[in-house]
Design a protein around this nucleic acid. Structure first.
Length: 417
DNA sequence: CACCGTCAAGTCGCA
DNA sequence: TGCGACTTGACGGTG
């Protein structure tokens, strides 16, 4: 089983995607942004390699206006070398990348212009995967689209418009059930006509189930039959509901107990599971560790190094308990380790604890007296309530960047809230 | 420097 | 009929 995450990552420096408004768009600005975004992609790929994560979704935002006439650049030529470099990294490390156009790419719209733009958008996605020299196992995952008051006609329109796609898009296109219009039975029906793979999404399914009653495992086994050899290992999406938000909202993190129950019911290993969750790579590493039969003490230690200041911030007690726990290297219990961490991150934040964590992080810097005075002034303001913890953390992050403290730049502390 | 509204994309549910 | 929700960074304006 491979587990992966989507687009962005926590604790990776320079991992964000920049964009631009139409009003300010120029070729030179576009080039600058694409260069930056491809570097971000490169850093995230490096992170995946380092953490042995073999499944990854590339953000559609990597090329701003990638399918729009506003972007006339031949970016695949301008950045040929960068694409080559990325392609080599992905290939050498056998990372399966995919892409997932957003909710605005609607192939079955009754509006011809929307369909035209959607086809252009799918061509753009295929182009990125083509220039990364990925095989047909690198997929573009798409939802069916809208219903427009007549589902049968809308599904028919999807089938017809699919035929308008160029072959390189067809080779990669796979379809997924969504949380309000097309349930898994609908998507499987479309798959039977087009002979293309189906991605099962457990949370969408929970919210939007078909009339036919089957277990998730049964649906997943049906979807499995839609994956041919050229399509690679079956892919599914896995996410959990955020209990405080509207139905369909992804949870902050994956609960490893819930995941393992689900995974054990699947009772198979030949499956790729894309996690859709707010804390992205953090959950991917967690699940990776909790399912790793050859887990080493250093795996948990490297994870702990990234969590520790967040835990100190939320719960000093847990901080000391986990430090003790990790001293026993013969008895590894990743589930217990991650449950302790997740529980701590659910405790209420107290200013005193936050200041304590800030002071620990500050201890990493070897600064001059002027900087120290600056810090003490900020600390004083923080205690008086005239400076927010958020601002203070931002200040510390910038110091970590300036002093190039890798240990801190890789920490979850600046991103986990 | 922090915060807020707007933008940009398409659909749908709800006043 | 039109607006809010979904998503997220950029950006202009305000405090």
């Amino acid at each position: 089983m491979n587990v992966g995450f989507a687009c962005l990552s926590i604790g990776v420096y320079h991992n964000d995607y920049k964009t631009i408004r139409k009003d300010n768009l120029t070729d030179s600005k576009l080039i600058e942004i694409i260069k930056y975004n491809l570097e971000s992609l490169s850093y995230i790929i490096d992170y995946n390699i380092k953490n042995n994560l073999k499944l990854f979704r590339i953000s559609s935002d990597v090329i701003p206006f990638g399918s729009s006439p506003f972007n006339q650049l031949e970016w695949w030529i301008i950045f040929k070398d960068k694409f080559k470099e990325l392609s080599r990294k992905i290939k050498d490390n056998q990372i399966r990348v995919s892409m997932h156009p957003g909710q605005y790419t609607v192939l079955n719209s009754p509006n011809e212009e929307v369909v035209d733009r959607s086809i252009e958008d799918l061509i753009y996605h295929a182009k990125v995967l083509d220039y990364l020299e990925t095989k047909s196992t690198s997929k573009i995952i798409l939802h069916i689209g809208g219903v427009y008051g007549d589902k049968q006609s809308a599904m028919k329109r999807f089938l017809n418009n699919y035929q308008r796609l160029p072959q390189n898009v067809k080779d990669r296109l796979i379809i997924e059930n969504d949380d309000r219009s097309y349930n898994i039975a609908d998507v499987l029906e479309i798959s039977r006509s087009l002979n293309i793979p189906v991605v099962f999404d457990n949370l969408h399914h929970k919210i939007n189930p078909p009339n036919v009653q089957k277990t998730d495992q049964e649906w997943i086994n049906l979807c499995r039959l839609t994956f041919k050899e050229k399509d690679g290992t079956q892919k599914v999406h896995y996410s959990e509901q955020d209990p405080l938000k509207q139905p369909g909202a992804h949870s902050k993190t994956i609960n490893p107990n819930t995941f393992l129950d689900y995974y054990h019911l699947l009772n198979r290993d030949d499956i790729d599971i894309m996690l859709e969750v707010k804390d992205k790579n953090v959950s991917a590493v967690k699940i990776k560790d909790c399912t790793n039969k050859n887990l080493k003490a250093k795996d948990l230690e490297s994870s702990w190094a990234k969590y520790k200041y967040s835990i100190l911030e939320y719960s000093p007690n847990t901080y000391f308990q986990i430090r003790e726990l990790l001293k026993d290297k013969t008895n590894l219990d990743p589930l217990h380790f991650y449950n302790r961490i997740d529980n701590a991150l659910n405790e209420p934040l107290l200013l005193n604890n936050q200041i304590n964590a800030i002071d620990h992080v500050w201890g990493y810097f070897k600064t001059d007296l002027i900087e120290k005075e600056n810090y003490l002034k900020k600390l004083d303001k923080l205690k008086k309530g005239s400076l927010s913890v958020k601002s203070m953390k931002k200040y510390l992050f910038n110091l970590a960047v300036k002093n190039n403290i890798t240990y801190l730049l890789e920490s979850y502390y600046f991103d986990l809230v």
